[in-house]
Simulated scan of single mutants.
Amino acid sequence: MTLLARDTAATAAAPVTARRARARRWRRAVTPVVLLAAWEGGARAGLLDTDKLPAPSAVLEAGWRLAADGPLGGYLLDSIQRALLGLLIGGLFGLTLGALAGLSRLGDDLVDPTVQMGRMLPHLGLVPLLIIWVGIGEPLKVTLVALGAFFPVYLNTYAGIRDIDERLVEAARACGLSALERVRHVVIPGALPSLFLGVRLAFAAGWLSLVVGEQVNGEGGLGFMMMEAREFSQTDIVVLGLVTYALLGLVSDLALRYAERRALAWRRGLRAT
């Protein structure tokens, strides 16, 4: 096939590929929409106790009311700031120690055994001890998020480096690349897929940790909003907080998946049929 024929075939296939991508995006929305419709229908038909599980329309109304009055935006901003700070701290520590253990035998011996023992401890179970160490203010919440983010980033950085084919490194050495050049051109591209997975898992663990942290003597944040609403039996606001956490997690995951596709455009993985 000539170059012109290949270009013509690729151009003709582009609209078909775009239509399939749009159809797939709509198909992915089917299940959430059906579940929301069933939830709303069950609440309106009296099958669900709306005092315990209000309808989606009631949750949306509560969100609109809080957004119009102002407090929802403040709570949301507080939670995002805590999450980003904790993820930055935990992620940087995980990346640094994971790279040290993955690239150096000495670093592996000194770092990895301690981290492997530490990851066996449920970090949310450390809340009583952390309260003694750092108190019940902002440091507790940021520390919980950082602990939740640290282990996924560390483990996936370490695994991503160690899973690189050693023959690629030897080939780079034979071509005259220095140690830093081998890290730049072989190690980093090879470890990036695993690292992106670790960051996505870190975001998920970070949001989960924040839910718990903000409910411990919280001052501001979505967790504080939920605990305050529980005191007054405002179930719609409690559910609103949970939905907001879920949406934050979804948005962050979508952003990371987009960044992963852009950064790893060279990779051709298995596609589902």
Rank of each mutant, 00 (worst) to 15 (best):
R6E: 11
A9K: 15
A10N: 09
T17K: 12
A21V: 07
R25M: 06
V30P: 02
P32W: 14
V34F: 12
V34Y: 08
L35P: 00
A37R: 02
R44H: 13
L47I: 03
K52Q: 07
L53Q: 03
V59Q: 06
A62H: 10
G63W: 08
L66E: 13
A67V: 09
A67H: 08
L72T: 07
Y75W: 09
L77R: 08
L77K: 05
L77F: 13
L77Q: 09
A83H: 12
L85W: 10
G86T: 08
L87P: 04
I89T: 05
I89L: 15
F93A: 15
L97E: 09
L103F: 09
D109P: 02
D109T: 04
L110I: 08
D112A: 14
L121G: 00
P122N: 07
H123F: 14
L124A: 05
P128E: 07
L130P: 02
W133E: 00
G135P: 07
G137N: 03
G137K: 03
P139R: 05
L140N: 04
L140T: 00
L140D: 03
L144G: 02
V153D: 07
L155C: 11
N156A: 12
A159M: 06
I161C: 10
R167V: 09
R167D: 13
L168R: 10
V169H: 03
A174S: 06
G176E: 01
A179M: 00
R182H: 02
R184M: 05
A191N: 00
P193W: 00
P193M: 03
F196L: 07
A202Q: 11
G206F: 14
L208T: 15
L210C: 05
V211G: 08
Q215S: 11
N217Q: 14
G221N: 00
G221Y: 07
L222R: 13
M227A: 09
A229H: 12
R230I: 00
S233D: 13
S233E: 10
Y245W: 08
G249R: 12
L250M: 04
L250A: 12
R257A: 15
A259S: 13
A263T: 14
L264A: 12
A265N: 14
T273Q: 08
T273I: 08
